[in-house]
């Protein structure tokens, strides 16, 4: 997949590295920006960051796989975060998650639709418990969900 990565994206990454790379403790912000640029963190990008910053690749990989925010695989254009926090759990979050998966036709361990329109994730709590059960699509929060509402919400995102 690495061969499809655009030159201009690497140029943008180099700008980020020039901006942040020299000060201490910047590996995580660099990775966050790199993921904003590429959409995910392919191997070539990690190698590039490691070479430019001098942080060993093993350490970069260790950090990437430690935090839930970083992804080694391509992701959908729209990210759905279905909250499975306590409040959402007792108000039926499991049923919501099942409904989303069935609307998207996701089976087994699949989290991304083949057309890359959606990636479905769970999140432990988005701090919106008053409206449980809730989900986030990108930066928008939808609350007081019932399974019947799901399709209508997903249809808003192309």
């Amino acid at each position: 997949m690495g061969d499809k990565l655009a030159e201009k994206d690497f140029a943008r990454l180099d700008e980020v590295l020039a901006d942040l790379g020299s000060s201490k403790g910047t590996l995580i912000p660099v990775l966050q920006k790199a993921q904003d640029i590429f959409g995910y963190l392919p191997r070539d990008v990690l190698v590039h960051i490691s070479r430019k910053t001098g942080v060993p690749l093993s350490q970069v990989f260790g950090v990437v796989t430690f935090y839930a925010q970083f992804h080694l695989e391509p992701r959908g254009r729209n990210i759905i975060r279905s909250c499975q926090g306590t409040a959402c759990h007792v108000r039926g979050a499991k049923g919501i998650l099942q409904e989303i998966a069935s609307c998207l036709g996701l089976e087994g361990d699949a989290v991304t639709t083949p057309d890359l329109r959606f990636t479905l994730e769970t999140v432990a709590c988005i701090g919106c418990c008053g409206l449980a059960p809730v989900l986030m699509v990108n930066d928008e929060t939808h609350g007081r969900l019932v399974p019947d509402k799901i399709k209508g919400i997903l249809d808003q995102y192309k």
Binding site: Q84, G85, T86, A87, A124, C125, G127, C128, C129, G130
Partner: peptide, 8 residues
């Protein structure tokens, strides 16, 4: 880093 589910 308010991570406790159920606290906001």
């Amino acid at each position: 880093d308010e991570g406790d589910p159920g606290a906001f």
